Amino acid sequence: MSASSPALSSPPFASALRAAREAAGAQHYPQGALYVVATPIGNVADLSLRALHVLALADAVACEDTRHTQALLRACGLDRPAAQMIAVHQHNEAEAAQQVVQRLRQGQRIAYASDAGTPAVSDPGARLAAAAHQAGLRVVPLPGASSVTAVLSVAGAVADDGGFVFEGFLPAKAGERDARVQALAQEPRAVVLLEAPHRIATLAQALAPLGARPLTVGRELTKQFEQVAVMACEAFAGWLAADAVRSKGEFALVLHPWSQAQAAESGEKLLALLVKELPLKTAVRIAAEASGGSRNVLYELALRMKKDSD
């Protein structure tokens, strides 16, 4: 370990720290490198042995919230002085990145951790990694916990040839949020969404127009009261309202892809109703946006419907 290594305490992580040294200590950890460390999203036992070793080895720890990360370090049996903690968050990332780069150029090993999960996905860290790359410095990933991969792993929503899209948090403004949902209605792949408890009811209302499209809701993933439920988008708001506890905690969600058959069937049913009340092009546009079906196919179908009704 480096001369600036933190003090090590005993339980409950003393055996884990020994295991981390034995399992990960033989690997080379170059100086002057930024180590991007995934940290638990709720369950501290999900911290990897290699992450634990690097958090002990690093000359300093850069993090989204120094108080939060210091609490994690202490829970793991590590205790660092304030001088070895560097705040790098969304409001100061560009400026703080230069401070980190300066330390890296001095040969220090710097570990970076966001408040939970893998940095630089929906949390800060991307600008820091980019600054290190631009300075010609090494950036080393330490993979681990992520709400994105956690919810995907239990959703059963990614086909072998489909992949997925990471959307993250939808816009806070209603108009922008609704526009994004309309765009997602056209996305043929699975879509991962994130949301905070104070906005989850708003998200549920925004997704309701997607109707029967399947949705996996992951709440408090990896924590004691973890909950995973699959439902139609139109049922999500009612599911939340049925139990006040369901609106608490952090959320990771997967909007499932619709098969072409499902999209076509849904689009045809909706189109049959719309062509009776709206101009043909308007009816086709709404049916395509709501179902994710092909606009060209629905347009041809609408022409036939109009012809049959005349």
Rank of each mutant, 00 (worst) to 15 (best):
S5W: 07
A7M: 12
F13R: 10
F13D: 10
A16S: 07
L17E: 00
G25D: 03
G25T: 05
H28L: 12
H28C: 04
Y29L: 11
Q31A: 15
V36Y: 10
P40L: 00
P40Y: 05
N43Q: 10
L55Q: 03
A62D: 06
E64K: 08
D65A: 09
T69R: 05
L72M: 13
L78C: 06
D79M: 11
R80L: 15
M85H: 11
I86N: 07
Q90W: 00
N92W: 03
A94L: 13
A94K: 15
A97C: 14
Q98V: 12
Q98K: 14
Q99S: 14
Q102W: 06
Q106D: 13
I110Q: 06
T118E: 01
R127M: 13
G136F: 11
L137A: 00
R138L: 14
P141F: 06
L142A: 05
L142G: 07
P143T: 01
S147Q: 00
S147V: 01
A150L: 12
V154P: 06
D160V: 05
D160L: 10
G162Q: 13
E167Y: 05
F169P: 03
F169H: 09
F169G: 02
F169Y: 15
P171G: 02
P171C: 05
A172D: 12
V181A: 03
A183Q: 15
Q186D: 06
P188K: 11
E195W: 10
E195R: 05
A201H: 14
Q205P: 01
P209G: 11
L210M: 11
L210R: 08
V217Q: 01
Q224A: 13
A229S: 09
M231E: 09
A235W: 04
F236Y: 15
W239L: 09
W239K: 09
E250T: 09
F251C: 07
F251R: 10
A252I: 04
L253S: 03
V254H: 03
H256Y: 11
W258G: 10
S259D: 07
A272S: 14
L273G: 13
P279A: 10
R285S: 14
A288F: 12
G292W: 05
N296K: 15
N296E: 14
V297Y: 09
S309T: 06
